[in-house]
Design a protein around this nucleic acid. Structure first.
Lengths: 245, 245
DNA sequence: CCGCCCATTAATGTCAGACAATTATTACAG
DNA sequence: CTGTAATAATTGTCTGACATTAATGGGCGG
């Protein structure tokens, strides 16, 4: 709970770190109120702007929330799965676009993880999950559906599949892999793909989940993966053809 | 690239959002320099403190970095896997501690994901990965090793296993599951566990990876999972015994 | 002509103080 | 007792200043 004014690191970084560590260590618990900005100024012997920049850093990570008015202040935030998922997907998406992740690498990771859910999913799936999957499959079959909407529905289908494993931790971790790579895959391949083929595979997966047949789910996810990679190949070939001419 | 001054949301949040969207959309690319704080003030018609708070928010997400001096400024940051992994682990850890995640849930998620790596790991493991695993197993066998060091080594072992799948995306996604749940599991069970049993399983896993035997890796990870859950049971029983007396 | 030192300059980092906006509490009037 | 207005506490924003850092260019000496 101290900072080193001689350190070369920015003060607001040090302060944010000090507070973050208290939260991680449990000294500050969920819904605890932090000292007011003025008190933090005194404690760390810095100006209010510096304290505020530190608090904004923490707020950006969803670690705290602030409230104005009397008996307001900064409170330790309960990290919700939804908030965390949003962040996770954003970061994963940027990570992949900025590092020019190989299509095959992303695809491999995504399906490896999704297949890991299959045994749990067939075991725990509820009627709700099945219904969601069926609805999305129906949507995907609608004529006139835009490519963007098809992508969205695709993501929703796979998310329902993952969620049906009934494990929040798993759902959270997979959000990054599935939701961040899916659009990437869609953008690359949607010009070339056959919606019928994908809907057929989705239907087979939903059926297998309903029948609690993990092996078939796994196999069909494998087919989907292979089909996606093949599409990518076709697109690449078409591109080099065009280059030649 | 505009903000709405009549919105109830804080200005610094709106500004951060506007810039974040430009980064996500690719308008601002990696290593691009943002306008200086003064220019951003004029552009958004706000004060410098507000702009700075917005920039700190982005910096907290590793989206930008800042540099002082002439020709300094804020630059779009290339998200590195290491930075992102650190964040991911921190968030996952907090998520699990704050939401009081069931031990079994965490354990289930972690092993399901790790087992998904097995087929890739046996295929792509290098001598380096094997060496790391062997070294960690050796460390784990040292008498007098503290519980904390044993935990660290355990994490390092599993990380080497995951990394040997040779897929950066996979390694990143799994960091959250493995590195965040492992300490939780260790804290709960390390009083009761037998290091010999764990070292034996680790050795079997390393051997199987070396022999490219995915099924055995999978089986041994399953045993490790079962053993961990059994330990947890023992601890729980011992606790209720103590309560009775 | 080359290299070193230094002033300049442009940028972020920090500070101080003020006012605005918001909200819970308290006091007061009816 | 109730509704309303004053009050106080707190975060949000603005302004202006100075400190710190680092690239740049110019002068000066070799």
């Amino acid at each position: 709970m101290k900072i080193d004014p001689t350190s070369k690191a920015d003060l607001s970084i040090q302060i944010a770190k000090a507070i973050r560590e208290e939260i991680m260590a449990g000294t500050l618990r969920v819904d605890d109120r932090l000292p007011s900005e003025t008190e933090l100024c005194e404690h760390f012997a810095v100006s209010r702007s510096t304290v505020r920049e530190a608090l904004k850093r923490l707020a950006a990570q969803n670690l705290i929330r602030t409230q104005r008015g009397a008996s307001g202040g900064a409170f330790v935030n309960r990290l919700s799965y939804d908030q965390a998922r949003g962040h996770h997907v954003t970061t994963s998406t940027l990570l992949m676009s900025m590092n020019e992740v190989d299509f095959q690498t992303a695809c491999e990771a995504r399906f490896a993880l999704e297949r890991a859910c299959a045994p749990l999913a067939v075991h725990r799936r509820t009627a709700d999950h099945l219904a969601t999957m069926r609805v999305e499959i129906y949507r995907q079959g609608q004529p006139g559906l835009s490519d963007e909407s098809f992508c969205d529905s695709d993501v929703a289908f796979h998310r329902a599949l993952v969620d049906s494993a009934g494990n929040d931790v798993l759902s959270y971790q997979l959000a990054g892999a599935v939701e961040a790579t899916q659009p990437l895959m869609n953008m690359i391949t949607f010009s070339a793909r056959s919606r019928e083929k994908i809907i057929e595979l989705h239907t087979a997966i939903a059926d297998a989940v309903e029948n609690r047949d993990a092996d078939t789910v796994d196999a069909k996810l494998g087919e989907l993966s292979a089909y996606t990679l093949q599409l990518k190949d076709n697109v690449a070939k078409a591109r080099s053809e065009r280059k030649k001419s």
